[in-house]
């Protein structure tokens, strides 16, 4: 479960002055729900996810992940989340198996259970063929599966996916999308950030349209269509974000 209340992140930029990367965002999600963050590049999706995953501190507002406050209980929050992004690289001189063991130790998985958990994850994502090959030698798809394995190794109740299919081919994207869909059945709370409309349309139970750091609308696909009077999500998105652009 995630609860976000009036969360904001402001940066001081020497050229642009104060940049409101995330500006008063509020929402909540529940277990078994795939919550989509839909926005163009630079809309504030990554900054929002970074705050929720405790990588950066909010300027104001509060957020709770799985009952833990991101500002006051960062360690407990980190134990409860898995984070995946295509911009995240693997350790090139470790094998997927070694990397999973390393991450497992960092997540505090007991040594008696770590080996079994690593093997279970490798089997779940069908990584046996390349689990002992250096990450540097893996194909893009294999790397993505390894990245996914790292994200779910400690079986977190909350998962963040930040543009997880960016730059991937159709087959690699399919694996990721199928995995995200399967999280619903496993009662995970998923926040899925994307700018690809078809992906949001396919997997999200609710979609949050974010633009210039602010939430423009939250609802199911049907609710958003009804609110804008548009049929296709692309048109819905434009309808929700264009007024500000034209005003600017």
């Amino acid at each position: 479960m995630i609860t976000v209340e009036d969360l904001a992140k402001h940066f001081k930029d020497p050229k642009r002055g104060v940049v409101r990367a995330v500006d008063g965002v509020s929402f909540s999600t529940s277990p078994g729900e795939i919550f989509g963050l839909l926005g163009a590049n630079g809309a504030g999706k990554t900054t929002l996810l970074r705050m929720l995953s405790t990588v950066i501190a909010p300027t104001s507002g509060r957020a709770e992940i799985h009952g833990h406050d991101v500002a006051n209980e960062p360690d407990a929050v980190r134990k409860s989340i898995g984070f995946m992004s295509t911009t995240t690289a693997l350790y090139s001189r470790l094998t997927p198996r070694e990397m999973l063991k390393y991450m497992g130790k960092l997540y505090g998985i007991a040594s008696s259970q770590l080996g079994a958990r690593v093997e279970e994850t490798i089997a779940m994502l069908e990584m046996e063929e390349f689990a002992d090959r250096l990450c540097d030698k893996l194909s893009t798809g294999q790397k993505q599966r390894t990245s996914l394995a790292r994200t779910i190794l400690h079986d977190p109740p909350v998962l963040f996916f930040d543009e997880p299919t960016a730059g991937l081919d159709v087959l690699a994207s399919k694996t990721i999308m199928e995995f995200i869909e399967s999280c619903r059945d496993r009662n995970k709370t998923v926040v899925f950030s994307t700018h690809i409309m078809s992906e949001a349309e396919r997997v999200c139970d609710r979609i949050c349209v974010i633009h210039d750091g602010k939430i423009r609308a939250i609802g199911t696909l049907q609710e958003l269509k009804q609110a804008t009077g548009e049929e296709r999500l692309e048109r819905v998105f434009l309808a929700l974000t264009e007024p500000t652009e034209s005003a600017a």
């Binding site: 970074r50 980190r78 995240t88």
Partner: peptide, 10 residues
């Protein structure tokens, strides 16, 4: 981009 992965561990 691997630093972020490390930063979100407990």
């Amino acid at each position: 981009g691997s630093l972020e992965t490390l930063l979100i561990t407990p």
